[in-house]
Every structure is written in structure tokens, then in C-alpha cells.
Design a protein around this nucleic acid. Structure first.
Lengths: 342, 342
DNA sequence: ATGAAAGCGCTAACAA
DNA sequence: TTGTTAGCGCTTTCAT
């Protein structure tokens, strides 16, 4: 398949009988500023349209310092929350003449380093990252070169710009209410113990137990990672250890819950009266056999905040709030806890 | 925030005391071919490493005709199937030194034209598209400039490279089995009537009815579009019309089913004995109150085929199969139809 | 009101 | 074995 090569600005300049620079001004909408005659302008525009002129982003980016491109780094796109955020960000970028570059880390730190380098090499104007890293040194260094916004997860007590969902108090609220009915047993299933989603949700869980007057039992806390398979495994082990399913459990994420549900359906546990709670909501949870009380993040809001913050940073405008904590909504699905909080 | 500007190849050449070209050869791993001394090579490499040299993709793409970038156009990333495909393709691209650019169309043809132009402007090396278009003229034109692979949906009887899931026979098989128990009523909920997913699945549905000896009733066929809200609406209308939920229904996609389930859960219909079937599977379907017999596409296979085909096209290698039809798997979830086909 | 020329960072002939 | 040179397509002073 012989590719016809595309027309360049020199081409259309020549065809319109003007110079490259004139054509460039016109095509960038600077006709007014340079007081170019309407006749020339229309002629150039006509030629460009006729030949479907597409300026080369690469040549352009080589001059001006921007690439009109944003990098997004997420663990997995199949996670509904990240898919929703990606979708929103893609729309925002598109509406603002930018292109979103999405890369996945599979929760793997070395892969994260790789994809981030890859994106930087592509000269992204900014980086929005849901990081699996344990410290922010890498991103601190990068942020000297281009704006970095952390989202969904924070890294330790980083000072980098941040947009996350408040997790401690909301978890506490959810867990406290449920714990009152499950004083004797209330498990916690988390991901990697040292990253913020796990730590915050665990902290909230503990605060919730406390608030309900329940003494936390260290054996109730289980760690894995945020892959669905890890949720499956942890839950399987727990059932094996107990010889029965647990009575109540708080699962730290949608991905883990996927594994738990898989196990439950495979082992005909969906009819059991286990009380499930989870961080992250999913549209299908309303149709499940089991009820799941959840903490629902607003992905659209998350994406919008990230994008606005990023835009300000890129344009070097002042940012009012460098670290935003968004409030999630509690989604009650158990009959005996229908009274909504908000 | 003052950005420190990155080091260029001239910079590292100067620091290493060699010329740009020498540095370029070395950094591209052509030291052997140009018989550059190990000393120089090591020196250059060391300097590059020390300064975290990141070559500019833009400058590079300006010379060599490739951008090492693939464009992916999908209706929505929140659709689980597309999310899974995107995820797979991202991995494949990354593993092969490419970057995936994802753009969404929201099932909107004019938006599709926009995002495609956008991607072309970014000089993608190839375009993988799940199109909502009714004809392939636009893509035929584009494919003269760069490889285009259609996936998930085909456009009319296009001759463009294609990777889709076989839908007619699989739908027929599914529908036939179920229709034997629902001779008197079996609805079909589709998206836009003129695009291939709808047409094929409808054709399969009709063939299935026929095979089960059921006379198709034109009133059983409902059209909308592939937004979840459309599924909700169609199903709501149907229930209103009947004054009760339908007895059996074949829903043409995961997105539509989302709407149907939403309606069912809101109207406490999850316990009713409606027989649900659907094209597209979802991991949570195993945990639903209602059973859904589905036709499950293999996203990984789909993605792999697309990627391989695209790679061959880009490298101008011969492609054995320009149009592949992958076989989906039937997923039976109703107790009385557990006997698997495959 | 328009054009000439330099340069963005890199690659690839061709010289030396 | 290494350096010189000429672009790739575009933007942007600075002339005219």
C-alpha cells in the first residue's frame, strides 16, 4: 500500500502563492494581528481546506515548548473507577485541544517508572498520576521539569499537587454504622499495606470500629495488592481459616471486591448473610444478589479537579488549592441501614 | 515554578566531546554498525545516563517517517469491553515501544470525525477504530495515507482490514436455545439499527427464532443507541406498553444491559422470572440476582489480532487474513440451560 | 501587508 | 572511527 504523503505548509504556501510565514500566520488565526489582506487569507484558507491540510504536531512542538498533550498514569484501565476518570479526562482534553496519553502500570513500580519516562520523552505538558510508589522523590524531580498532579492516591505526606477522595472519615462513618451490628467480627481486606489507599481506608476502618465501641482485632486485617486475584485469594484464605465465610467485611477497593465476588459466586456464597462493605461503587452493585454498602467516589469531579489544576499549573497561573480532598458519598444498600447520611 | 530545560543531544555531544552524529549513532545503539570505539561509546552513554537524557520524540518523528504511536478510537472507555481491549492494546503497544493514543466518540459520528483528524494530525502510525459510521468512505480515504484497522464493528460490506467477533451464528445459537422455552414472546433490544453490531445481532436473533420454530414478531424488535440510558428507556417503554416485564429478551450489548439492569433494580424487577440474554459478558454477571446468558467476546484475542494486523500493515508485511472473525464463547447462566455448547 | 531566514532536536548521507 | 551537512515541518523575529 503506497502511502500518499501529506501536504506541508510549504506546499500550501506555494499553491497559494505566498510564503511559508504568511501561510503560517493565517493558519494559526493570526491574520488580524499581522494585518494580512482578506484576499490572501481566504486564498490560503481555501487551498488548505481543499487539500485537507493537517499541520504536523511534531514540527510544531519542536518550536513552541508545548506538545498539547497530557499524560495519565493509572494502574489498570479495566478498573471501573479509573476507566471513568480516564473517560472524563479524555473528554476534557479533547474539548481543550489537547490529547490524553494513557499508560498503565499494573500496580508495578518499575513499570510505572518506565511508562512515566516514556511519557516524558513524548514531551507531555503535564502528568496526572495514580501512583503505586512508596515515596515521591521521583515525582519531585520530575515536577521540576513539568507539572505533576497526583490523583486517587497520595504518596506519604507529599507536598506535590494532589486530588484525592477523602477516605478516612468516610470509611469511619461507614464502618462505624455497620460495626454496631457486628461487634464480634469485622474484617478488613486491603491492598499493599504501605500505599495511601490502604492506609487511609484502614485508618478509617479502625476509627470506625473504635467509634462503634468495638475492640479492633489485628487478625481481622488482611493485606494483598489491588489486583482482583488478590481479593479472591485473601477471601479464599479467610474462608478456609474460618471454615465459613466471615460475618462482616470492609473491602478497600472495587478491584479487590471483584475477586471477593468471584469467589463468592463460585462457592455459592452469594446467598449467605455476610455483610459486605467496600470503597468504590459500581453501577452493577444495584443488581447483585448480595448487598454492598459502599463509599462512592465522584469520578467526574475527580477528573475535573485534576484537569483544572493541571491547566493552571501549565499556564503558570496561581492555584488556590494545591491539594484537594473530595468528599465521597455513602451508598447504603442493606435494608437495615437505608437511612442515608448525606 | 521555573522549569529546568532538558538536555539535548547537542548538549551531551558537547559534554562528551564528540559530534552530534556520533552521539546519535551511539544512543540509537548503532555503535557496532559504525564501528565506534568502546571508549567513546561508554563516555557518551555515561554522560547521557548522568544527565538523564531523554530524546525528543518530536524531533525524531520529524525525520523518520514514524511516530511510534497508534491511535485507538472507541465509543466509550467506560464500556467494560472497550476498557479491556484498550488495556490490552496499551500493554501490547508499550511492550513494542509504541504509545497508544485513545480517543472517544460517544457514539457520535461528527465527534468521530473530529477525533480521527486529531489523531492523524498527531501522525499516528496507524488507526484502530470501533466506528459508529454508516459508511467507510472516510476511512477508505484515510487508509491511503496510513493503515486503518476496523474492530468490534464493521461498516457495511467494507473491504478494509477488520477484526470483529462473529455475532450472527453465535446469537442464533443462543437465541434458538432460549426461544424454545419462550415461543410466545422474545424481545430484541438493539442500538442504532444501521450499524453492524445491531444488524448482525438482530440477524442472529432472527435466525435463532426461526431455528426454534418461532414466528418472529416485528413488534419484538426495539432500536435505540448504545448508550446505557437508551437501554433503560427502551426497557421502561416496553414494560409500560406490556404492563409487566417481558418474558424473554435478547439485549444487543453490555452498555444497553446496564440500562436494563438499572431499570430492573429500581423497579424491583430483579426477582422476576424474565429470561435475560445478552451480547457481551461482564465479570459481575456471575454475582447478579438475575441470570444472564451471554455471548462473551475475548477482548485479549481481539486486541492481539488488531495489533498484529496493524504491525504487519505498518511494516508493509503481507497479511494472511485481512478480515478476521473471532469466535465468541456462549456463557450459560440459567439453571435449565447449563449444558455448554463449546 | 508579506517575505527571508534562523532555528527547534534529531537522523542520515556523505566526507574525511 | 568520527565529523560535517542538510534537511524533517513549522514558528517567529526581523526586514522590507
Amino acid at each position: 500500500m503506497k502511502k500518499t504523503k501529506r501536504i506541508t505548509i510549504s506546499g500550501i504556501a506555494e499553491l497559494a502563492g505566498v510564503s511559508k510565514s504568511t501561510a503560517s500566520q493565517i493558519l494559526n488565526g493570526h491574520s488580524k494581528k499581522f494585518r494580512i489582506s482578506d484576499a490572501t487569507r481566504d486564498r490560503v484558507l481555501a487551498v488548505a481546506a481543499e487539500h485537507h491540510y493537517q499541520p504536523s504536531i511534531h514540527a510544531r512542538s519542536l518550536n513552541v515548548k508545548r506538545s498539547y498533550t497530557l499524560g495519565l498514569v493509572v494502574p489498570e484501565m479495566t478498573n471501573y473507577g479509573f476507566a471513568a476518570c480516564s473517560n472524563e479526562l479524555e473528554t476534557l482534553c479533547r474539548e481543550n485541544g489537547m490529547q490524553l496519553l494513557i499508560a498503565c502500570t499494573d500496580e508495578n513500580t518499575s513499570q510505572e517508572t518506565m511508562v512515566v519516562n516514556n511519557l516524558i520523552q513524548r514531551q507531555v505538558d503535564g502528568l496526572i498520576v495514580a501512583s503505586s510508589m512508596l515515596n515521591d522523590t521521583e515525582y519531585l524531580k520530575i515536577s521540576q521539569q513539568l507539572p505533576v498532579v497526583l490523583f486517587d492516591r497520595h504518596i506519604q505526606d507529599t507536598s506535590l499537587p494532589l486530588v484525592v477522595c477523602e477516605a478516612i472519615e468516610s470509611s469511619a462513618e461507614l464502618v462505624a454504622r455497620v460495626a454496631r451490628k457486628h461487634q464480634d467480627e469485622f474484617y478488613f481486606l486491603g491492598g499493599q499495606p504501605r500505599i495511601s489507599p490502604t492506609r487511609d481506608r484502614l485508618a478509617g476502618y479502625q476509627r470506625g470500629l473504635e467509634r462503634a465501641g468495638v475492640t479492633p482485632n489485628p487478625e481481622w486485617v488482611l493485606y494483598g495488592n489491588y489486583h482482583p486475584s488478590s481479593g479472591y485469594e485473601m477471601f479464599a484464605n479467610l474462608c478456609a481459616r474460618l471454615g465459613r465465610p466471615p460475618k462482616a467485611i470492609y473491602v478497600a477497593s472495587c478491584g479487590l471486591m471483584e475477586g471477593v465476588l468471584r469467589y463468592m459466586s463460585q462457592h455459592k456464597l452469594l446467598e449467605s448473610d455476610i455483610h459486605l462493605c467496600s470503597f468504590d461503587d459500581h453501577y452493577l452493585y444495584d443488581s447483585l444478589t448480595v448487598s454492598i454498602d459502599t463509599i462512592a467516589q465522584d469520578c467526574k469531579e475527580l477528573a475535573t479537579h485534576c484537569f483544572n489544576m493541571m491547566t493552571s499549573l501549565i499556564n503558570e497561573q496561581p492555584v488556590e488549592q494545591m491539594q484537594s480532598y473530595l468528599s465521597p458519598k455513602l451508598q447504603w444498600r442493606h435494608a437495615n441501614s437505608t437511612q442515608s447520611i448525606d
